[in-house]
Each structure stands twice: as C-alpha cells, then as structure tokens.
C-alpha cells in the first residue's frame, strides 16, 4: 500500500492549471487553481445515524471556500472530515473518497496527527489554552519538534503579526491568554493555528461568538491570510460568506426516505458571485433570499 502511495506521489499531482491567484472577485467565473481537497461520495456516520451523504466537491488552493446552510445540515460535520477531527468522537465514521492532494486522508497508514499538522482548525468558540499568550502560540511548534528558544520567539512574533494581534499583546506575552477579549482570543487562536504553518485552515463559524467589530477584523484577516493558506469556513452568516469567500457550498438537510432521519446533502457548489446572484438550484435561491432557513 505504502509503495503504491509513494508511486502515486512520484507520478506527481494532477497538473495544476493556474498557480497564480488572481483577485477577480467581481467576475462570475473564477480560475480553478490546484485542488487541495477532492471529495467524492463522502458520507459521515455517528453510530447508525448518517449525518451527511453524497458530498462531491473540490476545494481549491489559496481560495476561501464557504459552507453555508441551515442548522443540522452537516456543514460542520463535513468540515471536520478534512482534518480527521471525527477520530476523537467515539462511533463516528467517514466513508467515500476524501483526498488531500493525491493522498487518501483516510488511508490505512495515514496518521491523524500528521493530517492535523498540515490542516489546522479554528473553532466556533475561542478556545485558548489556560496558558500564557506565548505558550499558546508556541504550543504547536513545540509539539512538532521546534525547541530552539530563538526560533520559537520568531515564530510567535510572526504568527501574532500575521493575525494582526502583535501590537496589542507584545508587552504581555507572558500573561494568561484568558485575559484577552473574545475577539482577541479568536485572533490568538488563528495565530496559534498558523504558527504550525499548515497548508489549510479550517474555520468553524469563527465569528459566531463575536461582536460585529471583532467579526470585521477577523474577516479582514482571512482575506490577508488567503495568499498563504487555503481557507474553508463554515458560517451561518450569509453576508459573511458573500463578503469573504471565493466559492460557496450550500448544504441542506433532507429527510432520508430509508430511515426517517434528516441527513445533510450538498445542494449546490459554485463561485460565490454566481451563488448569490444567479443560483441554479431553487433551494439555494430560497435560502439565500430568506424564504427558508
């Protein structure tokens, strides 16, 4: 198995048409850069309950992809399949093809910790560790083998600068992270995530616990980070999706005729500008215009 994987890798990733990211948000069509994730017929189960089914989509490099949809439609569930966060939930199971570049994320030799080092996550509620600001940021690098003090200092400063937090906290790096405001805590969590230099940053409703001003700062930050990271964001806020994302996936929950349970499905996935101006599916249009959800 390992041999074939290695062989695949040697064969090279599928040719990436346009590596250069162009800021063309107004245009209806967006260049398809290299696909980071390739999902085919993905399903997630919690025990016997099927939470999501039949998801097919590609996430493109250095773009912001938004997952929107009503509560219980499986968008967070889908997001968590990308860095194997379901592994820590007893009874959760993922089926279908979920490839990270050309590697099967759920392949037999794949380690969840290796996956998560490359694919970071920012959570709904800011969750700084009850440690100092410095220790929060340096935790990831340390876990991944960086022990040199000077190197850590550099990483901490760089990450905090990237998260637009440096100027606010540079004089109190040794203070507890719990003393920061909610918005600052969330930016700290973003800084902590990018400190390990992941390729992808998953964001699970990162602004839902924040006020509008803090939300605006995070959105600004996301646009800045896009050049370095691929971002997938789950949001309840349609305006937010419209404001920040390049592509939008609309999920909804549908009654499964087989077992009378509501299962999440992907309704439509397209360039954001098109999704919000001219969606092809009626359900998307209803949701976006506020007739449903």
């Amino acid at each position: 198995m390992a041999v074939t994987q290695a062989a695949n890798k040697r064969a090279g990733s599928p040719s990436a048409p346009g590596r250069i990211q162009l800021e063309r948000r107004s245009a209806p069509a967006l260049d398809e850069t290299e696909a980071v994730f390739d999902v085919e017929n993905a399903e997630v189960f919690y025990g016997h309950f099927r939470a999501v089914r039949d998801v097919n989509l590609k996430i493109y490099k250095n773009q912001i992809t938004a997952f929107i949809g009503p509560s219980g439609c499986g968008k967070t569930t889908m997001l968590r399949t990308f860095n194997r966060m379901h592994d820590v939930i007893p009874g959760a199971r993922v089926a279908g093809k979920i490839h990270f570049h050309d590697v099967d994320l759920y392949g037999p030799e794949v380690s969840a910790t290796e996956v998560r080092r490359r694919i970071g996550m920012v959570f709904q509620k800011p969750n700084p560790f009850p440690k100092s600001i410095y220790d929060n940021i340096s935790f990831g690098p340390r876990v991944n083998g960086v022990s040199n003090k000077a190197e850590l200092d550099t990483i901490v400063e760089k990450s905090l600068r990237s998260a637009a937090l440096w100027d606010e906290v540079k004089d109190r790096l040794r203070n507890s992270a719990l003393g920061l405001s909610g918005g600052q805590q969330q930016r700290l969590c973003i800084a902590r995530t990018i400190a390990v230099e992941p390729e992808v940053v998953l964001m699970d409703e990162p602004c839902s616990a924040l006020d509008p001003i803090a939300t605006a700062r995070i959105e600004e930050l996301m646009r800045e980070l896009k050049s370095r990271f691929t971002i997938v964001i789950v949001t309840h806020n349609m305006q937010q999706a419209a404001r920040v994302s390049d592509r939008t996936a609309f999920f909804t929950a549908e009654l499964d005729s087989k077992n009378d349970q509501r299962t999440g499905i992907l309704v439509e996935y397209d360039v954001t500008a098109k999704m919000f101006s001219n969606p092809s599916d009626e359900r998307t249009e209803n949701y976006i215009t506020g007739r449903f959800g």
Binding site: A2, D102, V103, L105, G107, V110, S111, T113, V115
Partner: peptide, 10 residues
Amino acid sequence: MIDLRGKSAH
C-alpha cells in the same frame, strides 16, 4: 511530496 504516515504512534 506529502507523507501523512504517523511518526509518534509508539
């Protein structure tokens, strides 16, 4: 080249 195999499993 992406290697996602575990290193610290032991």
